[in-house]
């Protein structure tokens, strides 16, 4: 029922501790999400750690109506040096929803630490992981 605290639409927002509204809202770092829209795809470049604290922001951003209808959604993690199980949960959730809707999802630019926990949890066999955005697009 609640709007997330994430940035709206396809603009880029800079991460900073939330200044919003006192005690009701958690504070702490937020993600910087930069979206680039192609004809049949969107690339969302994430900067910052994806964790229990920031995963809702990412999910909020990736599940807006506009994002949902993009046939191919690429999550560029080049700027992500840390992921935890909440991040993995978010990836799996987005992937499953998009597959169910017949739409594609891909992760690119995994740093070694991020790749390690994907491997530890056997998620590399579930989530489409590519080296670069270019790889995904050239693959068609």
């Amino acid at each position: 029922m609640t709007p997330s605290t994430g940035p709206e639409g396809y603009t880029s927002a800079h991460g900073s501790p939330s200044a919003d509204a006192g005690s009701l809202l958690p504070t702490g770092p937020t993600l910087t999400l930069a979206s680039h829209r192609g004809p049949r795809h969107a690339v969302v470049a994430v900067e910052g750690p994806i964790d229990y604290h920031t995963a809702p922001q990412l999910l909020g951003h990736l599940t807006t109506k506009e994002m949902q209808h993009v046939p191919l959604l690429i999550l560029d993690l080049t700027g992500v040096d840390f992921c935890d199980s909440s991040a993995l949960g978010a990836f799996v959730d987005i992937h499953r929803r998009r597959s169910d809707a017949g739409r594609r999802f891909a992760l690119t630019g995994l740093q070694s630490e991020v790749r390690r926990i994907l491997e530890l949890t056997q998620l590399t066999s579930v989530l489409p992981v590519h080296a670069t955005v270019k790889d995904v697009l050239s693959e068609g």
């Binding site: 609640t2 958690p26 978010a90 959730d93």
Partner: peptide, 16 residues
């Protein structure tokens, strides 16, 4: 778990 905490939106304000 995926959603952030609610805020004092117009809908929630009445209750909070």
């Amino acid at each position: 778990d995926k959603f952030p905490m609610p805020r004092n939106t117009q809908v929630f304000e009445e209750t909070f």
